[in-house]
């Protein structure tokens, strides 16, 4: 093995070890903090569980319910019980869904994944394209329009945009269904792929339209910087055409930060999906999380929080990996310094 290879492998191992340690400490902190917050929540889990039947449930029944869910145990005991369930693999039983939390999360996350994945790809592609157009035409009316559009969107709340789209496209125009993930009153076997797509359009559009602004503004600024750089000036002096400059120098130097940013923005996407799913009553993980919070379903809420933490962590990790192992300056920079 050549010494530089050994150095490189050592660097990768250090990177993995450091990231694993971070993830471990992050998860422990998130678990303890969320559990502490939930145990101080003003919501009475028994009332929330019973719901509208609260008048018909007597004190004995309430006590039985509390005992069944282990709500009378001291907080530490409940934390330990929950931890044991996590290690067992089912993450406890959801009080609302009466199913293992892990099943609820995996089912709900599949629905959310379709939503977030669509929004992520669309916002990335359109945002990048708009940013490139605006940056290449800096100062023209088209640049001003795109900038104005992005700044307006960047200051728009997700739920408000969702409501607006609902009013226009579902209520007034009737082009899209008013909510839910599948048509109401249809057996699950009879739900077609087209039905699912039709229900996905508006929530995905809400998330994508908002996600565009971030990528577009960032890409635009980066491209403006690149086009003002010395190496673009030199490319002009070498007689390269404006198109070649945009293609060879612009895209090459803008793409990497844009992709990195897109991965790092998974946290915003996750947060946005919670609001969008709530507005559209879309049965994803975000909506389940809101229900779990409102109805005191501690195992599901904790499961969702942990899952969200891992999801965002993975996004940032991918951004980090791309940045570190794709950019030649960072990939080889350290190696040459050490040699």
């Amino acid at each position: 093995m050549r010494p530089e290879e050994r150095v490189q492998i050592a660097a990768v191992l250090v990177f993995i070890a450091r990231k694993s340690f971070r993830l471990g400490t992050l998860l422990v902190a998130v678990c303890v903090l969320s559990f502490w917050l939930v145990s101080h929540s003003p919501i009475d889990p028994v009332n929330a569980y019973v719901g509208a039947d609260v008048m018909r449930v007597g004190p004995e029944q309430r006590a039985a319910i509390a005992a069944y869910w282990g709500l009378n145990d001291p907080p530490l005991q409940r934390l330990v019980n929950w931890g044991a369930a996590v290690l067992r693999g089912d993450w406890g039983t959801s009080m609302i869904f009466r199913q293992p939390v892990i099943d609820v999360i995996s089912e709900r996350f599949t629905a959310s994944l379709a939503l977030m994945g669509t929004a992520w790809v669309l916002s990335g592609v359109f945002g990048f394209a708009l940013g490139i157009i605006a940056g290449a035409r800096q100062g023209t009316w088209i640049d001003r329009c795109i900038k104005w559009y992005c700044l307006t969107l960047a200051s728009t709340p997700t739920f408000w945009l969702g409501l607006l789209l609902l009013i226009v496209f579902a209520v007034w125009l009737g082009w899209a269904p008013v909510g839910l993930g599948v048509p109401a009153g249809v057996l699950s076997d009879e739900v077609t792929f087209g039905d699912r797509i039709r229900h996905l359009v508006l929530p995905a559009a809400t998330l994508s339209i908002l996600g565009v602004a971030n990528v577009a503004l960032h890409t635009r600024q980066k491209l403006v910087d690149v086009l003002a750089s010395d190496y673009v000036l030199f490319a002009r002096a070498k007689g390269e055409s404006e198109f070649a400059i945009l293609w060879k120098h612009g895209l090459r130097n803008v793409a990497l930060p844009a992709v990195t940013l897109q991965f790092a923005s998974l946290s915003e996407l996750f947060g946005g999906s919670i609001l969008a799913e709530q507005v559209f009553a879309y049965p994803g993980l975000g909506q389940a999380t809101v229900q779990a919070g409102l109805r005191g379903d501690v195992p599901l809420l904790l499961g969702a929080v942990i899952f969200g933490a891992v999801f965002v962590f993975v996004g940032n990790l991918l951004a980090d990996i791309i940045y570190r192992f794709v950019d030649p300056r960072i990939r080889w920079g350290g190696r040459y310094e050490q040699c």
Binding site: Y231, A237, K248, N253
Partner: peptide
């Protein structure tokens, strides 16, 4: 007409 520029900054860092 060719230019010989000043510094490494005139080369594309990713090419």
């Amino acid at each position: 007409i060719a230019l010989v520029p000043q510094s490494v900054g005139f080369l594309n860092p990713l090419m």
